[in-house]
Design a protein around this nucleic acid. Structure first.
Length: 687
RNA sequence: AGCGGGAUGGGAUAGCCAGGAGAUUCCGCCGGGCUCAUAACCCGGAGAUCGGUAGUUCAAAUCUACUUCCCGCUACCA
């Protein structure tokens, strides 16, 4: 039983997200290759306040909003060969019913109680304000804080009602507190159980260790209801509806793992896969998640499972995050490589799968850059794996029209067995990386072997010896197809048919790696293609200009329409003037800035852009081309002759295809240009 | 503040749980070979006292304690 953390139906998928899904898919496929009965399920996470709020912003219903994203995910995963046996969503009937059943059982077993708590309420908008929809002053450190946590200041968790001067982060209205009865899950009584559970838990070290500290601090009971419309209704208990609240999103989200398995079971029949056996009897459950949701999968979720007498997870594999050229992905700054963008660029999914699966330990953070991507594809997939396969199979085809009549040597048989053992060890260690590396190392051996045996010198001289060598190489090629299937399902399938095999490599087990290949096959084709340097440059330029453009738009004060986060918006509601940054810079750091007086010589608007203007600026020592987001705010024809202040040593950027070599300083949304009052000459340094 | 993860030749990484010849792989560098193959592949070499200190041990990258520096989490970002 393998599951992947549910994607939250609130935005596009980028390749950082894919790390978890590719990891889960590789792991599930590898289990199947080892002959294990496996179900691999997932679904979209539809509920929660961000979906409700973003739907409202777009003027649509939460259901419609979430479903649109759900459909996109459902379509995207298969394109990366992430092949779930079932992909559902938390709002479907199966999950709604099962979630309510879970909660009813928890109630029956005495794990839930009611408690009156203070809830923030916006009297003007007539709505209650759950979680982070409240902002105010932290009672401990006096910093601006969210309703549930002092995120900027001391980091303390805040109980409802604690925060001072509460305001709605949506409307800015002052909030008041009202008493409301909520349901609480008695997590605290599971402490002992969970402590034992963590001792038994397998998977990555971060997932096993991180929750320990939390447990030692003592668990707080968990409020499992929210006062909003979007979500799964709190179920009837004893025939009565005890509350008109909905369940907290983290209650119904993990239950989707079970629901999705149930749907799979119902589709293929319980003989084929029995969800109840998997979840309530002797199933071995492996959760593959991102490391940000470790707590939910190692504390709340096992407690819930235990509370309803289901099986506990055997392992949690928590992936590290991804960075892009060393910095974090940022959806709001459009600094990301999007899943669909990758495919639109025409890259084979196997290339990214290989990179994500083997570029570092699963729990390690991994950096992505197009350069690194190119290097690994060209050196390892093309140079090592692809080259070995192509040279071997081409040689076999030309000289023997397929697999030569000969026995596999003991050496090669032993080496393939070793690769299978490595593969299996990777599965047992929850190491996606080891699973992938086992095959690449086998191919590396293949290259050494063919080089050492030099069959090209044997042909015509000692055909029998040549036949033996090539027979070995074809066997290695077949083993590569079988063992590389989890990481590279698409190219492995191609390879499988290249060596003349019928059926699908997805259906065979690792035993097939040692079985004889078909006698005849045709000329092979190259499985992997090199990525050229120009291509990498192109991709980097695209990324840079996109980021620069997003930054320029933000500078121009156009963030309102950007759908995500909402937190940036919230701040502007609180106050029109940004507070002065707490972090002071040193005088030396200030001196790093090369600020100069310049004069605009020429200005022309950039086509297709709302606000960008291309300027030629004289900065004394030279003339510079600078692109600035000021078109709407100034009459472009009036700009020449204006003295401005520019940052001369800012790194170059490309915006809308135009190089910008420096930055113009301007104040606020109106792009009020900075200039001088005296007669400082052009090129004067500002200090 | 607490907790988690990390620190390994110039760069990037494996090994650590189950201690054992001065350590993996990829890139880069130097030299050689081969010519079947996608200017690819193979062989050899230079280069690291495995963040630091102290300990356990016949033996420490690996275990223990302390310490420095990065990254993250702390209850809704994969």
């Amino acid at each position: 039983m393998v599951t992947c953390g549910l994607p939250y139906a609130n935005g596009d998928l980028h390749i950082g997200h894919l790390r978890t899904y590719v990891g889960g898919d590789v792991y599930a496929r590898a289990l199947e290759s080892l002959g294990q009965e496996t179900a691999f399920v997932c679904g979209s996470d539809m509920h929660g306040t961000p979906v409700a709020v973003n739907a409202e912003k777009e003027g649509t219903s939460p259901e419609e909003f979430a479903l649109a994203w759900h459909e996109q995910y459902e379509e995207t995963f298969p394109r990366f060969d992430v092949d779930f046996d079932n992909y559902g969503h938390t709002h479907d009937a199966t999950n709604t019913e099962l979630t309510q059943e879970f909660v009813r059982t928890l109630e029956e077993n005495g794990h839930v109680y009611e408690k009156e708590i203070k809830v923030a309420y916006d009297p003007e908008a007539e709505q209650s304000l759950p979680d982070r929809y409240v902002e105010g002053t932290c009672p401990y450190c006096g910093e601006l804080a969210r309703g549930d946590e002092c995120d900027e200041g001391c980091g303390r968790h805040l109980e409802p009602g604690e925060i001072e001067d509460p305001r709605s982060s949506v409307t800015g209205n002052p909030a008041e507190y009202r008493d409301q009865t909520h349901k609480f899950f008695r997590v605290s009584e599971f402490e002992e159980y969970l402590s034992g559970f963590l001792d038994r838990l397998e998977g990555t070290a971060n997932a096993r260790n991180q929750p320990r500290g939390w447990l030692e601090d003592g668990l707080r009971d968990w409020c499992i209801t929210r006062d909003m419309d979007w979500g799964i209704d709190y179920p009837d208990v004893d025939g009565e509806d005890p509350t008109d609240l909905v369940l907290y999103v983290w209650v119904d989200a993990p239950i989707e793992y079970v629901s999705s398995t149930k749907q799979y079971s119902e589709r293929v029949g319980a003989d084929e896969y029995d969800w109840q056996r998997a979840w309530q009897e002797d199933g071995e459950i492996v959760h593959v998640i991102g490391r940000d949701i470790i707590q939910h999968h190692t504390v709340f979720w096992p407690a819930m499972l235990h509370g309803v007498d289901y099986s506990e997870p055997r392992a949690v594999m928590a992936s590290g995050f991804m960075t892009l050229d060393g910095d974090g992905f940022s959806t709001s700054r459009n600094r990301a490589v999007w899943a669909r963008e990758y495919l639109d660029e025409g890259f084979h999914p196997d290339l990214l799968r290989y990179y994500l699966a083997t570029n570092g330990g699963f729990q390690q953070d991994v950096d992505f850059s197009w350069e690194k991507f190119r290097d690994r594809v060209n050196n390892e997939l093309v140079g090592t794996v692809g080259n070995f396969l192509y040279r071997s199979l081409l040689f076999a085809h030309r000289n023997f029209e397929g697999t030569p009549e000969a026995e596999v040597s003991d050496e090669v048989e032993a080496r393939i067995e070793e690769a299978i053992a490595d593969f299996e060890a990777g599965v047992n260690d929850y190491s996606v990386r080891a699973i992938g590396d086992a095959t690449v190392e086998l191919a590396r051996f293949g290259n050494e072997y063919i080089q050492r045996e030099e069959p090209w010198n044997l042909v015509g001289d000692d055909d029998e010896a040549a036949a033996r060598v090539i027979r070995d190489c074809v066997q290695i090629a077949k083993a590569v197809a079988v063992l590389f299937e989890p990481v590279a399902p698409g190219t492995s399938e191609e390879l499988w048919s290249q060596i003349g095999e019928d059926g699908s490599v997805h259906d065979v087990t690792t035993d097939a790696a040692l079985a004889a290949p078909p006698r005849d096959f045709g000329a092979p084709e190259e499985l992997y293609e090199k990525i050229e340097d120009e291509r990498v440059e192109e991709l980097n330029e695209k990324l840079e200009s996109r980021v620069a453009e997003a930054a320029a738009e933000e500078d121009a004060g156009e963030t309102e329409t950007v759908t995500d986060e909402g937190e940036a918006d919230a701040e502007s509601v609180m106050s029109d003037i940004e507070p002065v940054a707490d972090d002071r810079i040193s005088f030396e750091e200030f001196q790093d800035l090369d600020l100069r007086i310049g004069e605009i010589l020429a200005a022309e608007p950039i086509e297709d852009s709302d606000k960008l203007v291309k300027l030629t600026v004289d900065i004394g020592v030279e003339e510079r081309q600078i692109v600035a987001g000021i078109k709407q705010l100034h009459d472009v024809d009036d700009l020449p002759g204006t003295k401005v202040v520019i940052v001369a040593n800012l790194e170059k950027a490309e915006l809308f295809g135009h190089e910008s070599n420096g930055m113009l300083l301007a104040a606020g949304d109106d792009a009020d240009l900075l200039t001088t009052h005296g007669d400082s000459s052009i090129g004067t340094k500002i200090r």
